[in-house]
Design a protein around this nucleic acid. Structure first.
Lengths: 205, 205
DNA sequence: CTAGATAGTAACTGATTACTATCTTTTGAG
DNA sequence: CTCAAAAGATAGTAATCAGTTACTATCTAG
């Protein structure tokens, strides 16, 4: 059974990250063991430590992978969209779509946020949030210049609320145990968000 | 040092729940050990198992405690408020205030949601959500009858969004490591929510 | 005041964990 | 083809954890 499949160190690290993300879709991240990860990869547990100095380093690699991907996806979705509000909607839906494709991600990131002390992985999550937030603020400022937002709107609060809406949606999908169904509930949620910030009472288009 | 303080079984269970909630404010729930809980209570680890058949039972007691309290607080806040929208606001702020008073609660509940399989504690969280949601729907229907909501509003989505907004706010407080500051950010968040559902564009009063 | 019931202690157990030391196999450059 | 370096297997280790056992202190009903 020991059909050893040799992979380069880089390829093995990549597979490790994928295995962790997949496992987080079905198991609790906090109780995920290196043995379980190795088993999933078809490798012995000790082999993992040839490529990662510690379990903590595995988590760091996983969080870095997620942060990079989600940011790329969301940025790409907003790219080339002229209307700022439409760009915000595209970001919202792209974010949700990414999570639906990777059901393990919410549990994974939430698991990292459970650590009270700022670990390296936790700092990465915070950094991701900060960049995300700045991008939102840029779009909101553009929308304001074009008179799309209602007067007196606190852009800072609006950006915070955007992230909150996405996170709330994700959390409820986790509670309902239906991460895939998040894409169906997303449009209505963004609609409510848009109504909360836009100037006129127009609903669509 | 063995100054034994005898307590009734019920009192000891109550103290256990309090200890767990307090510890969740500073430590990761998933790595919380029975030894750590006992240490906090000034009792030996084995003593816990006189009052709880297992560690899982401790978590169940804790979640039940939280569910009962948060529901009571939120209901009391909405009680006696004539205007449905004002009642919703009262619920929102009461919920947030409760969390600010018990900073360990978000991490605690999120920790339970990490379990993929439906444990007893997880089922309690779901039940809490369902009751909470029904209460919101009642208020939203009242508001609709009084013509306070915009036409074509999906009440179901509005209720979901309410919970999502609270949860999003909580999650961001956790990320920012400032659970106490949640009360300051709550009014702006509810304002955005209200703008999203109400009929006229009026902001306050 | 006494005796049964209750609450707590101290020490232990078996299972599990992250991590490591040593040996074997595979790979790929020259 | 050769052989050193890289990748994996095997078999550990010390630490930690939930839960148990045997004993002791305290409370309370009669």
């Amino acid at each position: 059974m020991s059909q050893r499949q040799h992979l380069s160190a880089e390829a093995r690290r990549e597979r490790t990250v994928e295995a962790v993300i997949e496992l987080c879709g079905r198991e609790e991240p906090a109780t995920l063991t290196t043995g379980r990860i190795a088993q999933r990869m078809g490798v012995t547990q000790g082999a993992l430590f040839r490529h990662f100095p510690s379990k903590e380093a595995i988590w760091e690699a996983v969080v870095a992978w997620v942060a990079e991907r989600v940011m790329a996806r969301v940025s790409a979705a907003a790219e080339g969209v002229e209307d700022p509000l439409a760009a915000l909607e595209a970001m919202f839906l792209a974010h949700v779509a990414f999570i639906a494709e990777h059901p393990g991600v919410p549990r994974l990131l939430m698991g990292q946020l459970q650590h009270p002390q700022p670990t390296a992985a936790r700092r990465m999550v915070k950094g991701l949030m900060a960049r995300y937030r700045q991008r939102l603020l840029d779009l909101l400022e553009q929308a304001q210049c074009q008179g799309q937002l209602r007067q007196g709107l606190d852009l800072d609060a609006a950006a915070t609320h955007f992230i909150g809406c996405v996170q709330g949606l994700v959390l409820q999908s986790l509670i309902a145990d239906d991460v895939a169904g998040i894409v169906d509930r997303a449009p209505a949620a963004f609609d409510l968000y848009r109504y909360g910030i836009r100037a006129d009472a127009g609903g669509d288009a």
